[in-house]
Simulated scan of single mutants.
Amino acid sequence: MKKWMQLWLPVLLWVGMIFYFSSQPYEKQDMRPTFAQYVDEHTVEKYFSWVDFRYVGHEVSIAHLGVPGFLEFFLRKGAHFSVYFVLAILLHRALSHYSMRKGQAVIFALLLTAAYAGFDEVHQSFTKDRTPLWQDSVLDTVGGSFGLAARLLFMRLKRRGSAPRI
């Protein structure tokens, strides 16, 4: 039981945190007022006014979103990526302790990460002012893939004795 807790409790806590934040309406997570108060908009405009692209059919640019909205877009997408980066690492860590080949643990961790990303977007569809996007599930899965790659690289370096001390 102790080993199970050490392996799976971090996964369950992380998934619970994702679920909690997905349960919040957008207005509770709106970072635009904070950015407007603390960020020098002229500096951001100076360096990033050239950025202009479409995400899910919407323009992402300072001209369209304003500096606070522009920064919030990248903060939110960065959160998607990084939260699932960590989830995949935690899942792989837990799954690696079962008798399966190394590749199977990687595949299962990635499949579980992708499945939870999809579930999370469905969950958001029931939350006020939240928009479920399959594109965010893809971003989450990419984040998970990078997390797994980082974990495997770290494990390889550790076996060689050249991993950085953390």
Rank of each mutant, 00 (worst) to 15 (best):
T141Y: 06
V15C: 07
F85R: 01
F81C: 00
G103D: 09
L110A: 10
V67D: 02
Q29G: 01
H92K: 12
T127C: 07
V83A: 12
D52N: 14
F21M: 10
V122S: 07
M100F: 15
G143L: 04
T131N: 13
Q135I: 02
L139I: 12
T34F: 14
L133W: 06
L133M: 13
Y38Q: 04
V51T: 13
A109R: 01
G144F: 00
T127Y: 04
A149F: 15
G16N: 07
L148K: 01
W50M: 11
L112P: 02
V60C: 00
V44Y: 05
F35C: 02
L7M: 10
L139Q: 09
F154W: 14
T43P: 00
P68C: 09
K46R: 15
F73D: 02
T34R: 13
H42F: 12
M100Y: 13
G161A: 08
V106A: 12
F21I: 03
L13I: 15
Q6G: 05
Q124T: 03
Y20A: 04
M31E: 09
H92G: 04
L157E: 13
F53E: 03
T127F: 05
V44I: 15
Q135T: 09
H123F: 11
M31V: 07
M155R: 14
M17W: 12
S162Y: 12
W8T: 00
Y84N: 05
A117F: 06
Y38D: 00
R54G: 08
R165K: 14
D140Q: 04
D40V: 01
L95R: 02
V83E: 13
I89M: 06
V122E: 11
Q24I: 11
F73C: 01
L139W: 02
K158G: 10
E27P: 04
W50V: 05
E27I: 14
P132V: 05
S96D: 13
S145F: 14
R54V: 04
Y116N: 01
I18W: 03
W8L: 00
Y116E: 00
R130F: 13
R54F: 13
Y98P: 01
F108H: 08
G103Y: 11
L133H: 09
T113A: 02
H97I: 03
F73H: 01
Y38T: 01
W134L: 15
F146Y: 13
Y116F: 14
R156G: 09
G57Q: 03
V67M: 02
K2A: 15
F19D: 09
D120R: 01
F108M: 12
S23W: 13
Q29T: 05
S49F: 11
